[in-house]
Design a binder for these strands. Structure first.
Lengths: 204, 204, 204, 204
DNA sequence: GGGTAACCGAGACGGTACGTCTAGTCTTTAA
DNA sequence: TTAAAGACTAGACGTACCGTCTCGGTTACCC
């Protein structure tokens, strides 16, 4: 899934009809996202200002407002378009293995500096439904869908209990990781490992 | 535990020596907390401003800053001092029962309007370590400690596996509820019930 | 004198050699001037924007900038090309009559809505020498020259004092009218009449 | 007349009851007016921005907006509070002398750099009735009243015609000077002298 | 009648300034 | 000493225009 595509206005170049007017500057777009990423290494999501991004990217504020509805959208775009956040995993040997891999990958993505940024994005989104929607579509949906498939497969091949409620199971898998994230607890290999241990026992 | 006491500077009037000068106005304090609660019914935590509180409470901004370090502290104080957020539960028949009660109570507290406010406070806290600390001390610690006791008791009396890691178990219990909260999913009796069903099976 | 000709770039069709390329669109030109006039009935000169004109006239901004150097030039063009601002007067019986007619005509032109617009143009011109030059060439020069001729004629035929300084006299004739205009005093028949009364006595 | 007093909010310290709250900072006020004067030596009235004043004066924009309704008000305050613009003249020997002195003083005040600034203020005021009112009250009214008194005195002692219309006469006296100002003509001793010559003849 | 040149509309671009808002601090009088 | 009132510096917000630019397309001429 291409994260970048989701919420910045995207011309579906299916139709070869070019619109009138000067076309969008790709270099400006890149400069904005790059500036955002750089600023995020020194500043929190909430303290990051559109003005600072515009200045750093040598871009007019209007150019940012033209293509993104709000600050959070820019940041989500900038952060989740990075390869580190792509959700690509090898085909697993079993449903359990798949889920284990999924949790471990998520744990690694949400550890350290990057985790802090995601937490701040998620925090910022709590007061802005639009931002939350963007966050979900861009980041969460993918993990959710993967887990859903794995759980269904596991139920079918006997790895997991047949009467397992998929939605609840996903909450139980993703919940603890995000809970550690937002409650300021460390997310490391140890905690992730212990979590998978306990969870896989549960699902059976 | 008296939430209100934790972080607003509180004179322990144990010593009957009255300090010189005008004493702290209890009516101002009440007015501030009440104004905050009222404003929160119409405004999100992030959009609520100290200025608005001061105006509504007919109080100088300085008075607020004198007694609370920041906006989040005021809000935490105002919200969690309400009886609905107190964590008082009857002594349970068993560890499992206690955990079930704990989850169900939390689910009720985090549903609806109140849940939204807690989510916004938690969101706001992601960028401010001080605020997060206050939130944890005032709201989370209590639940954490209760669960910890229950789990230990359960492990001792054979209800739960002896090798159960308490910290991980707490993450698995609280995580899903908070995950539903911050990801915008409904928290209702059904979801809470299904969660307890799955969890209690796990812990054994 | 055709006002419109003065400052919008005008090909002196002396040479009948037509240049290559698409010729200037007369319909766009008309649309721009008409839109400007219409907008001026609702908006002040200073608040009128090139963008608004372009939008109203369904014209690209570039087209305006191609043919006029700045906003004031467009407005001067739009306003003073109207017949009401042409300076055509019947041949007078005497120099005094000519001057009286000139003042009265000017008074009528600078009264009411039109007067307000001229005042705003003149105001806008105070900070832009180019705009002032255009205003003078398009509107003022004509009146100045007419008065100059009349005064010289009057001095020759004995109506006015021979030692009358023409430049000063013109200042004394035009000054009061413009002073009333820019100081927000009404310009009506009464005030104009009283002015001519006083002035014609002066010049003798 | 103290120009400065007219339109910046002024506490009439008649009543010795001081209001609660931090009082207006006189040093900020001085810094704002001084910064405005300095900036005006390099920039035109129209290009001068509130932001530039605030920056130069090390003052919050809000402080400016709190005490002056708009840019023009600040500038009028800054410019006309200077001693050079005070309208203090020695008691004249005659009405004619008084008028001559008045015109010559005005001529000197409106010549050179200062004249340019006044012209720009007057220009700016053409689109803003409030600004025009302030300009009149602060600068024009005084001259108007002086001339009015002188003319009435002159009519009574026989220097001027009894049937002279005072309002019209003032227009004829002030008009030419302002006309030269706004039409970009030099105002110097020669032109002022020739004007008085002609005018004083008229009024008789 | 194809090439070329200047025009056209549309609209994105980097910028500047606006006037408003809030933060957190400071300074006064009143209690 | 604390309270209320409210002014202070600072700086971000989102909007409006500026004057320039870059497109695809149009409309004349000239060879």
């Amino acid at each position: 899934m291409s994260n970048e595509a989701l919420h910045s206005v995207e011309e579906t170049n299916q139709d070869n009809s070019r619109k009138a007017g000067r076309p969008r500057s790709e270099s400006s777009k890149r400069a904005i996202l790059e500036a955002t990423r750089r600023l995020l290494t020194h500043t929190s999501v909430q303290k990051l200002s559109i003005e600072a991004i515009a200045k750093k990217a040598s871009v007019g504020k209007t150019t940012i407002y033209r293509w993104w509805p709000n600050k959070t959208a820019v940041i989500v775009d900038a952060v989740f378009s990075q390869p580190a956040f792509h959700n690509i995993l090898p085909t697993p040997n079993s449903a359990s293995d798949g889920i284990r891999a999924q949790i471990e990958k998520l744990g690694r993505q949400l550890s350290g500096k990057n985790g802090r940024i995601v937490a701040e994005i998620l925090g910022e989104s709590q007061a802005e439904p639009d931002a939350l929607r963007i966050f979900i579509e861009t980041f969460l949906q993918d993990r959710y869908n993967s887990l859903s498939s794995l759980l269904e497969a596991g139920k079918q091949n006997g790895e997991f209990a047949v009467d397992l409620d998929t939605e609840t199971a996903i909450d139980v898998i993703l919940g603890p990781v995000f809970f550690r994230l937002i409650s300021g607890q460390e997310i490391d290999d140890t905690s992730t490992h212990q979590l998978t241990q306990l969870l896989l026992k549960t699902l059976r």
